[in-house]
Structures are given as structure tokens and as C-alpha cells.
Amino acid sequence: MRRLATALLCLSTLVGCAQPGALPPADGPAIDTVPATQEAPATDTGWVTYQADVTAVRVGPDPRSLALTVALLGDADGCSRNPRITYLTEENNRVYANVVQDSRLSGTVGACPTHTPGTVTLTTPGPIGDRIVVLNQEPWKRDGDGYQRCDTTFGCDPMPTDHCDPAWISVAVRGMDVSRHSVGSPEGCDGRWLVMTVPFDPVPCGVEARAGCDASVTVRRYFLRWAGERGWASIATSTEAGCGRVRSVEPAFPRKLCADLPTP
């Protein structure tokens, strides 16, 4: 009897360790899902709802449905059951949905070390068409019979092919140690090399400039090289006129882009 009581106490402790993740709204309209992996309802003792990460999206058998591939907690009975949609809404010509699973062991360290693929069917009241689908707050864009996860930098808009496009310039500035309000002003760009000025802080003297404050001292000139998928990479900075010291750092930087530039 003492061994039985000890075992029950240990089981109670393990169940109590399970903590829920970020719970999605539970008041969305009901939609079609895959049959539950187990028959017991989600309210069973110890079962907690967690997000199920979506790894792939494909067009379903009818215009109103999508087939979602999800990563389910695996390797033990009690790791995952009932992958499903718990929330669905349509706003601003987009479809929003949350994909979840139930787990009894995910709060136990080492109990569910792997993931196994599962499927969930998302069905909307009307045709989905080419609308953006946002799953667990991540947007997906249709690409033929499948969907591609939207880029973390450019969202669902096409990535600009012109390296001198303002969107690429903004990405470069966001990677600098400057104010989040700073904006780059290109002075020369040929697609491979870029030179621009960037203020450390656009309003260092306040919205209404303080007496004696000189904002110009916070502006620097940046020289950058195109680095492929990573975008623009900074190779030198200067507060001088012309090319400054960039050509001593990178002799290939074209003089024509910077030789006649004034002091920033």
C-alpha cells in the first residue's frame, strides 16, 4: 500500500508540471478538423492545449479548404492528440486561424523529445482564392497549389529585384546601431555598392530644437556592399567629404559614387 500511495503521489506531481502555452481564442466558429487522435475529451485531467506549428500548407479538395501539415509532439502516448482549429475569422481580405493540439506530457522534461507530422483541414465559409492565410500569427501566401511562408523582412510583398530599392535601404538601416526613427538617404548606388547618410537620431534636439543643439553632428556616411540574401553589409563609415577611408578598406569601391560627396 505504501508503494501504491507513493506511485500515485509521483503521478500527480508529473501531471501538475504541465503548463499551458499561449492559448488561442476559443470562441471562433467551428470548422472541419482531422479526427481526434484519442477518444478522450480535452478536459481530461492533465491534458493542456498547446500551439501546433504549421510546416506546410496546400490547397484542399475544394475552394473552401486547405490541408495543413503540422508538427505534433511525439514519442510517447500522451504527448499529443486532437490537432485542430480553435479559432477562425476573416478580416481585411485575410483568413486568420489558430492551430492547436492537446498534450498531457509536454510539461514533463524529456517526455516528448521529437515531433511527428500530422494534418489538419481548415475550411472557410466561402472560397479562399488568393487571400493571405495567417496561421498562428504567421502569414502564408498562395504559390500554385501550395503556400509559401511570407518573408520576415518584406512580409507577403514580392522581394524587390532592384537592390537600390527603398525597401532594401530600410532593411540596411534597421540593422545599424541607430535610432529606430532613422532613415537612410542614398547618395550613390549601382546595385553592388551603396553610399548613404544616416542620422544617429533624426530628432536629437527634440521635436522643437533646443537652443545650442546641433543635429548635424549626429549624421554619418555609410559605405555598403551587396551581400546576397543578407542584403546590404556595411564596410566603412565616415564624417568626411568624398570617399573618406572606404577605399583603404575596400579598394574596389567605385570612386565615382563618392568622390564628389560633401561633408555629411
Rank of each mutant, 00 (worst) to 15 (best):
residue 4 L to M: 11
residue 5 A to E: 12
residue 6 T to S: 07
residue 7 A to Q: 10
residue 9 L to W: 08
residue 12 S to A: 14
residue 12 S to V: 06
residue 15 V to Y: 09
residue 18 A to D: 13
residue 22 A to P: 12
residue 22 A to V: 13
residue 26 A to H: 07
residue 29 P to G: 14
residue 31 I to M: 14
residue 33 T to C: 15
residue 42 A to V: 04
residue 58 R to V: 12
residue 61 P to M: 15
residue 65 S to D: 13
residue 66 L to T: 06
residue 69 T to F: 05
residue 70 V to H: 07
residue 71 A to Y: 02
residue 73 L to M: 15
residue 84 R to V: 09
residue 87 Y to W: 15
residue 87 Y to A: 13
residue 89 T to F: 11
residue 91 E to W: 14
residue 92 N to Y: 12
residue 93 N to W: 05
residue 93 N to T: 09
residue 95 V to S: 09
residue 95 V to C: 09
residue 104 R to F: 09
residue 106 S to A: 13
residue 107 G to E: 03
residue 109 V to G: 00
residue 110 G to A: 05
residue 111 A to N: 07
residue 114 T to D: 11
residue 116 T to Y: 10
residue 116 T to R: 14
residue 128 I to Y: 05
residue 135 L to G: 08
residue 136 N to Y: 04
residue 136 N to F: 04
residue 138 E to Q: 15
residue 139 P to T: 08
residue 148 Q to V: 15
residue 148 Q to N: 14
residue 150 C to G: 04
residue 151 D to C: 04
residue 152 T to F: 11
residue 155 G to Y: 03
residue 155 G to E: 07
residue 159 M to T: 15
residue 159 M to K: 15
residue 160 P to E: 10
residue 168 W to N: 06
residue 169 I to A: 05
residue 173 V to N: 06
residue 182 S to T: 03
residue 183 V to D: 00
residue 187 E to T: 03
residue 191 G to T: 00
residue 192 R to C: 00
residue 197 T to R: 10
residue 200 F to Y: 05
residue 204 P to W: 09
residue 205 C to P: 02
residue 206 G to P: 04
residue 207 V to Q: 14
residue 212 G to L: 09
residue 215 A to G: 05
residue 222 Y to E: 08
residue 224 L to R: 11
residue 226 W to S: 02
residue 227 A to V: 03
residue 227 A to Y: 03
residue 228 G to L: 12
residue 238 S to G: 00
residue 239 T to D: 00
residue 239 T to Q: 01
residue 242 G to A: 00
residue 245 R to Y: 00
residue 245 R to E: 01
residue 250 E to N: 06
residue 253 F to K: 06
residue 254 P to Y: 04
residue 254 P to R: 10
residue 256 K to T: 12
residue 264 P to N: 03
